[in-house]
Design a protein around this nucleic acid. Sequence first.
DNA 1: TTATAATTAGTACTAGGTGTTAGCATCTAG
DNA 2: CTAGATGCTAACACCTAGTACTAATTATAA
Lengths: 191, 191
Amino acid sequence: MRAKKQARQSELQRVLDSNPFLTDEALAAQFGVSVQTIRLDRMELGIPELRERVKLVAHESYAQIRSLSEQELIGQLWELELGVKGVSVLDVTMDMIFAKTKIMRGHHLFAQANSLAVALVDAPVALTAGAEVKFIRPVYPGERLVCTAEVKEKTESRVYVEAVTTSAGNVVFTGKFTIAVVEQNNKEGEA
Amino acid sequence: MRAKKQARQSELQRVLDSNPFLTDEALAAQFGVSVQTIRLDRMELGIPELRERVKLVAHESYAQIRSLSEQELIGQLWELELGVKGVSVLDVTMDMIFAKTKIMRGHHLFAQANSLAVALVDAPVALTAGAEVKFIRPVYPGERLVCTAEVKEKTESRVYVEAVTTSAGNVVFTGKFTIAVVEQNNKEGEA
DNA sequence: TTATAATTAGTACTAGGTGTTAGCATCTAG
DNA sequence: CTAGATGCTAACACCTAGTACTAATTATAA
């Protein structure tokens, strides 16, 4: 019975990790044991009750989605000299990769550089009008991407920004961004 | 007393919209009425109880986050002729925009086109190596973006894809993508 | 065989409700 | 001025998915 209990508990952990919305009753039925056994297992594993689990998921993912949509910059800002240069850092997580190859999806690299380029521009409204980007080598989860963006040229309506993203000192991405500075109701350029 | 009730109910709606994690008791205290009054208000407004609200938030945002990270393609695929052309559609929602200007962030447009370009390539592993993109005009929430991507040229290790995104028939974005086809352990190109 | 571990069962209690009935105060129309 | 409608509060029984605890039963290994 020792091995059986061990197996059930690790399976329970696994099941609740992938689906936290199961009641003790449902779990008891699923495992063919009594509700009390499930409760004891949860106690031993330190897994909170259904309602607490649901509350946790709700709070966490609520906050996560809020921050995702409210986030003006992709990554964390490390340095910013408005109109001159900026540095941001992005840690590559499992939700940024291709499931098959475990390689980071290009648009996340683009997003980090693009949002930094836009943030760099010292104007009330700045929109990306165009970009030329190169993906130098694949990036994998766990890497820390440091993006450095510099203003190269300025005209009345355009700012040219060059960005370089490195991981542990190696360049993984470069981009040239043309940012449109919208004064009033200018129709050119886009975010 | 009629106006008071109306005001309280619309305020209640607003409060619970922005924070669904409040108990009737907390709400009663906040509004200076009895718990029963809050319950009646909820009934009339069709607002479910705390636990149901939490469950909803949990399920919704859980699913949303899951789908965000599992999604291979940004947008919905409408047509796909592997190695030839593809069409995808993306509805612009509030979480894709700049808070200030309500204009869609560039990387979402990039992501739609880029993921379609990659999906188009008939190879086990395809990674974006480079891209040249133009943002023609600002895009706002509610618009439906139709992205059409076509393979223009093919070499042994590279596929050149051109993408055009339109909204209600007007071009809003164009992009030229160079996709690297990785055969074995080729180190060039990136997603 | 017996000590120990694992499981099950039962009871009392909890939060955050629902559903219902009832008692008042207040307003409004006839 | 009064009857009926509207709004607010209270009280009670019930629900779910638990916790906390005690006790009994079953399995197993020494």
